[in-house]
């Protein structure tokens, strides 16, 4: 029996080759870190449940994508059905930061007619001594794009939970406010299994009271 969840969100993880996309996802979904990880060839798939508030669980389905440019012909098919994305660069690799814009353009071009909520992730923050991108300039760029910025390390398990959970909360808020809607034929957001979805413990108590009347 699968755990009960309120919504299911699909997220896509993108960014240059070797910025650490697979390692970040593995840390998040499996709690492990491998010193060396195979290059991702094509697209891979992971999932995990997160609790954004006590009792409120969201199921995340995460696409891991190949960073090498030519694989974009394969990976671009996966934007359309994603509601959120983590755009990674490696803080020790300036070029991967410069390519952020290109990744965003790529995403924009292929997500139509839907939209994706992105978070900009400066990865490998444990390697601070080799840093080539300052936190300040990354924050500035993220602000310009209207995204959050967060620095993570899969090796030292820094902010990995936070990166995924914050993004999940943001999307949840948008769904709650009706700015993102569940749509037929779109896999980005799906409603949970529970019939008569109970949104919080308060509502349960309220309805109980009503019954007593």
């Amino acid at each position: 029996m699968e755990a009960i969840w309120l919504y299911q969100f699909r997220l896509i993880v993108i960014g240059d080759s070797t910025v650490g996309k697979s390692c970040l996802i593995r840390r998040f979904t499996e709690g492990r870190f491998a010193q060396v990880s195979d290059p991702t060839v094509g697209v891979d798939f992971f999932s995990r449940l997160v609790e954004i508030e006590p009792g409120k669980r969201i199921k995340l389905q995460i696409w891991d994508t190949a960073g090498q440019e030519r694989f974009r012909s394969i990976t671009r098919a996966y934007y359309r059905n994603s509601v959120g994305g983590l755009l990674l660069f490696d803080i020790t690799n300036r070029r991967s930061f410069q390519n952020v814009h290109e990744w965003l353009e790529e995403a924009k071009a292929h997500v139509q007619p839907y939209q994706i909520v992105f978070v900009l992730v400066g990865h490998k923050c444990d390697l601070d001594t080799q840093r080539q991108v300052t936190r300040h300039e990354a924050e500035k760029l993220a602000t310009a794009y209207g995204m959050r910025y967060i620095e993570t390390s899969a090796r030292d398990a820094i902010n990995v939970e936070k990166a995924f959970t914050d993004l999940t909360r943001d999307i949840y808020e948008l769904v709650r406010k009706g700015e993102i809607n569940i749509q037929e034929g779109w896999e980005g957001v799906k409603s949970g299994f529970v019939p008569n979805v109970v949104h919080s413990s308060e509502e349960v108590i309220k309805s109980d009271r009503r019954c007593l009347c």
Partner: peptide
């Protein structure tokens, strides 16, 4: 379930 073949077999072919 709208599973694209690229997702499950890309590696089989490429590698």
């Amino acid at each position: 379930h709208a599973v694209m073949w690229t997702l499950v077999v890309s590696r089989w072919f490429i590698c």
